[in-house]
Amino acid sequence: MTSLSNDVLLESRGLTVRFGGLFALNELNIDVRNGEVLGLIGPNGSGKTTFLNVISGVYSASAGKISLGGIDITREKAHNISSYGLSRTFQRSRLCLSLSVFDNIALGAQRTLNNGLWHNVVQRKAFAAEARKIAEEARELLGVFNTALPDKLFDPAISLGMIDRRRVEICRALIGKPKLVLLDEPSAGMTHDETDQVVDEILGIRKSLGGLTIIIVEHEMGLIERVTDRCVVLNYGKKICEGKFRDVAADPVVREAYLGQA
């Protein structure tokens, strides 16, 4: 493996996360190349979401090293990691439901905005200009979904259906122009058709943004097959296989891991 080639965006080496005596991740080495869509699959409890949580800083690593774009982020706090160009969605929708769609999406652009008290409270013209800019960008992003979403920009998030909430979450993850986006089970809570629709939309957005790197955790194998360039299979916190979906799916070790689970 040419892990040290300079087109690697995210690199984990010996990454271990322990909860008490349980190894959620065990000595994990994963490379994510610039511009690829990497699928992270494996049975329930194999450590997929833990991996996303540890690289986004929600959990801290017990051992090992993570670097993003060549910068060591292993010990960084969650709120700093986003400034290196990482953003994500969550398995269970984490929109602030009592806030408007606009407020939720603005959160994704937080680090590009001026948070000073003086700017926010006194320089209202400058603030309004900023708000206008975000609103335009948000409308544009929402418009990609080819729905009535741009018109709902100032509606409360709670008034949206499940699929629209997921779309808003994706917009929130994208508006900050990240280099790497983590999608944690984008199909969760949606019907098969809705999932297909959202996947097409994600691919469409990716095309329009040009070569965004994505890590996607998913149970829906059809989705993985359609969108990923490469897959990593986890089981009990360890990497058991890596490669194109077709090859991975045919691998006897992978089959055993899934069947053994079932």
Binding site: V58, H79, S82, R88, R94, C96, L107
Partner: peptide, 16 residues
């Protein structure tokens, strides 16, 4: 509001 409603989401998107 975001800090009140969801600390995890807040910190993931860069709020201290």
């Amino acid at each position: 509001d975001v800090v009140r409603l969801d600390e995890t989401a807040a910190s993931v998107f860069g709020l201290k």
